[in-house]
Design a protein around this nucleic acid. Structure first.
Lengths: 344, 344
DNA sequence: CTGTTAGCGCCTTCAG
DNA sequence: CTGAAGGCGCTAACAG
């Protein structure tokens, strides 16, 4: 319960004017002597400059608004780590708002942040709407989007189409012909549409008679597990989970039924989460560097703040992680094995 | 790039005084007629009240400082979800600071937050020091601690000792006599000391000739995996990972060596993460409800803000999750099996 | 180099 | 019920 000591108290105690103290705090045009007096006074009183008063003047909050669809997900955690890596050293702090996967809430959050006077906003979006564009237009607060991409907005995300395509081409190369893509709703453009489309095209392009069926699941283990029977009914040579978690749920189901992976059926995922390396067989997947996305997004926002704005659309590099869950049908043996080592 | 419209502009446009607009915004002693005029003016100008100016007067920021050891962890994610669940409906927002698992940084963050003028602070601590107590004393900003417990501070955490004890007693009940506790550094009082101590006492209490060896690992899959050989060298009947992740790393190792779990050796964890249910065998563990911890911590802080402060120490309930990874040595068969169902 | 003088945008007595 | 006046704590010209 400290008394609130202001710059005036310090000034009085040091025998100088407020401005001198202010200068001491900021630029620094002060004689060495007064400098010392101010320092002493500040130490004695335990003075802490008032954040709000300062911001009221300087028009700079050093606050970055961050809106996320949810908190308890690995990828979101990585993303935040990426933000922090960039913002923290520069003295920016993050104001966090969660949208519970609801677009409406996401919009509200953005608006609220804009009023709040944050310097910039990053939103890990669940789907871009027209209102997003409006908000970006009508407010002076720089905005960058992650997780989805949209024309005319500053977006940074992983290349979902590319990842899907890469996986499709790889599996075709391994001699697979019948795939099931276990994916999520199309509301999620990035995962439900782009990633899937990429896979479809990568897998079927050329003269092959490759086919791919689609089975919709949720994002969690359990909903994937529950759809496993439907998936198997399509008699695929390979099951492609839109997400590592989906694949893990399916792997569990296959294990319970005694169906050998990859001997009898292959499974792949997307995401490259660590757990994919500890399950058996270790999951072949494509690694998304969400932390890097976070860093790029942060840097991008900083650029916009500095006026070096360029409404560009960035996509991140992908890393194919070949582990144990795919069988090479072309040469009749399992693909190269990489277990825990691939964690390093 | 909007023009910044202030309360004065609105007042002018509505033909009233600033105070009247202010009243409209806050309490509300205004005639219906002017109320309407102000509303119109506000809509027309797109006025948004300035956050900092407002806070400068009201001395209330509606901001909660949150300091976390790291971002990319499931438990931290759950914790944040819990905070958000409570704070969000009340209009509080979270200001996030990360300490990268460094105590010094954690202290700095707390201090920085205190100066910032947040209404309250929650810190998910990696270890309480004397400085923590000082900071809590010398600042008027209410503080609640999570993750660790310390006398004289407001703490809310899971009961690590109790969890350890519960697990120890359970395994002894299953007829196990030789355990290895694969744990982390003692710097982490909660996990490295309390949880371990609880296990030791729960497992050895009574006249049994139970023994437990200790092998130190990190928090991640890989470091546990790398210590698996050392652990096996102790020839335990059961391996107790201090964390589900540790157990998962060990499970992977055992699988690679063809050692059957639970037939040849049992494994348990702590945490109750979802993944524990999809690996095979599904991991027997103790579930920690971090989201609940988050909610309780948030509520506690709110109480302190409201003056209903009570320097109490709260511990959360535990849930034992019996799955497939422990063999009952007493009656010579595996314990009850619960796979994915236990996710529900 | 330093003190004085003005506000930043809003809220809050205080007379009316 | 309403307008005028006075700050909240700090910074930023402006003359010295």
């Amino acid at each position: 319960m400290e008394e609130k000591v202001t710059i005036t108290d310090v000034a009085k105690l040091a025998g100088v004017s407020k401005s001198t103290v202010s200068r001491y705090l900021n630029n620094g045009y002060i004689s060495l002597e007064k400098q010392e007096r101010v320092r002493a006074a500040i130490a004695e009183t335990g003075f802490k400059s008032n954040f709000f008063a300062k911001r009221l003047k300087t028009k700079e909050s050093k606050l970055i608004g961050i809106v996320l669809p949810r908190m308890d997900s690995v990828s979101v955690g990585k993303l935040l780590s990426g933000f922090a890596r960039i913002f923290e050293p520069l003295g920016y702090q993050g104001l966090l708002l969660v949208s519970n996967l609801e677009v409406e809430k996401e919009l509200q959050n953005i608006e609220s942040l804009q009023q709040q006077g944050v310097d910039g906003i990053i939103v890990d979006s669940v789907g871009i709407t027209e209102r997003h564009r409006e908000l970006a237009k009508t407010s002076g607060v720089p905005l960058v989007i992650t997780g989805q991409s949209a024309e005319g907005l500053a977006c940074i995300k992983i290349d979902d189409y590319g990842a899907g395509h890469m996986m499709g081409a790889y599996l075709r190369g391994q001699g697979h012909t019948r795939a099931v893509f276990a994916g999520v709703t199309e509301t999620d453009t990035a995962v439900g549409v782009e990633r899937r489309k990429g896979f479809l095209e990568g897998f079927t392009e050329g003269e092959t008679e490759a086919t791919v069926d689609f089975v919709q699941t949720g994002f969690d283990f359990l909903s994937a597990y529950n759809k496993a029977a439907d998936i198997l009914a399509c008699r695929p040579t390979v099951i492609v989970g839109a997400t590592d978690n989906i694949s893990l749920g399916i792997l569990r189901y296959l294990h319970e039924r005694g169906i050998k992976v990859p001997q009898e059926i292959s499974v792949t995922g997307f995401g490259g989460y660590d757990v994919g390396a500890v399950v058996y067989p270790a999951l072949t997947t494509i690694f998304f560097d969400y932390e890097l996305v976070g860093m790029k997004a942060a840097r991008f926002l900083l650029d916009k703040l500095a006026g070096k704005a360029k409404h560009e659309k960035l996509e991140m590099p992908l890393l194919f992680v070949e582990r144990e869950s795919v069988r090479n049908l072309a040469i009749g043996q399992d693909s190269e094995k990489l277990g825990l080592q691939s964690l390093v």
